Computed example of a mutant assay.
Amino acid sequence: MGRIPPTPLMKEMFYAKLEKDDYIPALTWITSNPSKDCSHFSKKSWMNLFKENSQRFQKDTIVRLMNEWKK
């Protein structure tokens, strides 16, 4: 209710949606919940998090996520 969730919670919710192949809800979650600290969402930060959590996703998750983002 007008409060911004903590960054770790935002990322965990994003990953939980990706694990279920829910790409549109995952993107909606991130875009509708802006972070106070943009450095947590830098390109390098995302790449590190995807590498650290790669065992949680299917091999083509990032490609499918990017395809949904372009739509």
Rank of each mutant, 00 (worst) to 15 (best):
M1Q: 15
M1D: 14
M1N: 06
G2M: 15
R3L: 13
I4T: 14
P5M: 04
T7S: 02
T7L: 01
P8C: 12
L9T: 01
M13R: 10
M13S: 05
F14C: 12
Y15C: 04
K20M: 04
K20L: 12
K20S: 05
D21T: 09
D21F: 08
D22G: 01
Y23S: 13
I24L: 12
I24W: 07
I24C: 11
L27D: 05
T28M: 09
W29M: 14
T31P: 00
S32K: 07
S32L: 10
S32D: 12
N33Y: 13
S35G: 13
D37H: 10
S39W: 07
H40N: 00
H40S: 02
F41P: 00
K43C: 05
K43R: 08
W46V: 08
M47E: 08
L49Y: 03
F50R: 01
N53K: 04
S54L: 05
R56A: 03
F57E: 05
F57M: 06
K59L: 03
T61A: 06
T61Q: 10
T61M: 12
I62D: 01
V63Y: 15
V63C: 13
R64H: 08
L65S: 03
M66G: 13
N67H: 15
E68D: 02
K70I: 13
K71L: 12
K71N: 13
